[in-house]
Nucleic acid binder design. Structure first.
Lengths: 137, 137
DNA sequence: TTAAATGCAAAATATTTGCACGTTG
DNA sequence: CAACGTGCAAATATTTTGCATTTAA
């Protein structure tokens, strides 16, 4: 999920229209792939405040339902969004500013517990929460 | 953190007073150690609605600052609370029936990445999704 | 042209704050 | 009795909803 035309095709397939507002929102998301953006962050990126907050909420929900964006709720209860990664990996997420640092998965230390419980893994999620070097100050 | 007297001692050490309201809240928390309770859940446990929501918010914050409770924000952005476990653990979650199986955290293989990025971890979440032994059949 | 998307206003929800009064130690 | 805790009311903040208007296809 890293080119605008790819996303446009996906939206088209879902019967959604390509609007001026969606185009701007996608530009902002594609320029910020390493941070989870709040609606307020996104508003701050729109210089002439040409998009209403309601429209941002509605489009972020639509994008998430279409698998274009992923979502989290930060330590203050704010929704944050980013474009989905094409490559799976894990995240350190700053609960203050939403910054994301990726790291690879190196072990599956839980394998014995899976076997023991006859559990069949389909996927796993590892997220490290805390403060990034800027926000810890 | 599993007996009321232990918690009372801790509160006393922190210079906090033992009030009727705190006593009731602790009873509710101690009777619900396997679920994260929202303020609304807690209100629902108080039959005669003798405690104001504000008091619950303030006490849950105080409990959390004292290390008595732990907190999370759920998928809807609601704060939820539970008495701290003596042992932290992670979850295998069956995507069919919702069953949860706990397992302990044995490694922090991501430590080098944290150090490298000057990240300050507050907590981490590891969830293994899949099917439990019953649902895989 | 017409169904979907948008902007604005208002509502809904969750949480926080100020302050007077009550209670604990 | 003195400090802390509580309840009530009002303020904040975020997100959602209703509806008339605009716009993409």
């Amino acid at each position: 999920m890293n080119s605008k035309s790819e996303i446009y095709n996906l939206l088209h397939d879902k019967g959604q229209r390509i609007t001026h507002q969606k185009s701007i929102l996608l530009d902002i998301l594609l320029e910020n792939t390493d941070i989870m953006l709040s609606v307020n962050d996104i508003l701050g990126c729109i210089s002439d405040s040409s998009i209403d907050a309601t429209t941002i909420y509605r489009n972020m929900q639509a994008f998430t339902e279409s698998g274009i964006t992923e979502t989290m709720i930060d330590h203050k209860g704010l929704n944050r969004y980013k474009i989905c990664d094409s490559q799976p990996h894990h995240h350190m997420i700053c609960t203050d500013c939403g910054k994301i640092i990726n790291f690879p998965c190196e072990t599956k230390f839980w394998e014995p517990y899976i076997t023991e419980n006859n559990f069949t893994e389909t996927h796993h999620v590892i997220k490290i929460y805390g403060k990034c070097s800027d926000c810890v100050k």
